[in-house]
Simulated scan of single mutants.
Amino acid sequence: MSESWETHYRHFEGKKIPAAATLSKALALFDEEQYPLQSRHAIDLGCGSGIDTQAMIQQGCQVLAIDQQEEVLHQLYDNIPTHKKNSLTTLCRSFEDLSELPESTLVNASFSLPFCKPEKFHRLWQLIVDCLLPGGRFAGHFFGVEDSWRDNPDMTFHQSFEVQQLFSGFTIETLKEINKDGKTVSGKDKHWHVFHIVARKNLV
C-alpha cells in the first residue's frame, strides 16, 4: 500500500458506502439467534473511516473502535448521533501495541489484519481468540499469498490451509475466497487475493 492512511481514508469522505458484507452477515446471524442487544459487545479492529463501527452501533452493539490514526477516531466520534455516543469507546493504538482485548461477542476486522506485521500476527490473533466469548463471532478478511501486495514485509499473508487452521475451535459460517484483478479505492490496478470470513466460536 503506497499511499498514506490519511490519503486512503479521504477516498471515503462524502460517500455512502455499506458496511462490509462479512459484518452484515454476522449481525444477521445474531439477529436470527435473537441474541440480546444488551449483550452485544463488539470490537472493530482497524476501524478506519468507521463505516462498520456505525453499522454495529445502529444494530445495538457497544463498540470498542481501535485504530492507530487519532484523527479518524475523532471524526468517527463526531459522526455518531448524540443519543448513540455512549455506545462508542475509542482506542488509538497499533496492533503491535495491544496487550489485551475485552471480552466480546463480536470482533470485526475488515481488511485490517493483513496490515499487522508477520512477527506480531500470531500474538494478535491469540488475543482475538481469547477475547471472544463462546458463541461469539469473528467477521473479517485475510489476504492470500497471490495478492499483489505480497512482497510488503510489513504485511501478513496466508495460504488457504493456514486460514482454516486459524479457526480451530470455531465453526466457519462463511468462507469466500476472491482471487482476481481489480482496483484499490483510489482507482489503482491491483490483484486481490482475499479470504472473506464469518466464524462462530464453539460453545465447548
Rank of each mutant, 00 (worst) to 15 (best):
M1G: 11
M1H: 12
S2T: 14
T7I: 09
R10L: 11
F12G: 01
F12A: 07
E13M: 07
G14A: 10
K15N: 11
P18T: 09
A21P: 00
S24M: 13
K25M: 13
A26H: 06
L27N: 01
L27K: 01
L29K: 04
D31V: 08
E32P: 00
E33A: 14
E33F: 05
E33S: 10
Q34R: 14
P36T: 09
S39I: 01
S39H: 13
S39V: 00
R40S: 04
R40H: 07
R40D: 03
A42W: 02
I43A: 01
I43G: 00
L45Q: 04
G48Y: 04
S49H: 15
G50H: 06
G50N: 06
G50S: 08
I51D: 02
I51P: 01
D52Q: 08
D52E: 11
D52G: 08
Q54T: 12
A55T: 11
A55E: 12
G60R: 07
L64D: 01
A65I: 07
I66N: 00
I66R: 01
D67L: 05
Q68S: 13
E70C: 03
E71K: 13
H74T: 12
Q75L: 12
L76E: 02
L76D: 02
D78Q: 15
N79V: 05
T82K: 14
H83A: 13
K84P: 01
K84R: 14
N86R: 14
T90Y: 02
T90H: 03
L91W: 08
E96R: 10
L98H: 07
E100L: 08
P102C: 06
P102K: 05
N108V: 12
S110G: 15
F111G: 00
F111N: 09
F111P: 00
S112I: 10
L113A: 03
L113M: 14
L113V: 08
L113F: 12
E119F: 12
F121M: 08
R123K: 14
W125L: 05
L127H: 07
V129L: 02
C131I: 07
G135A: 06
F138R: 01
H141L: 08
F142C: 02
F143E: 00
F143A: 05
G144H: 05
V145Y: 04
D147C: 05
W149K: 03
R150Q: 12
D151H: 14
N152C: 09
M155S: 11
T156L: 05
T156M: 04
Q159W: 11
Q159K: 15
Q159G: 11
S160Y: 11
F161H: 15
Q164V: 13
S168P: 00
S168F: 09
G169H: 07
F170W: 09
I172P: 01
I172Y: 06
I172R: 04
E173C: 06
L175H: 15
I178S: 10
I178Q: 13
T184A: 04
K190C: 07
W192M: 04
W192P: 03
F195V: 03
R200L: 09
K201G: 04
N202M: 10
V204E: 14
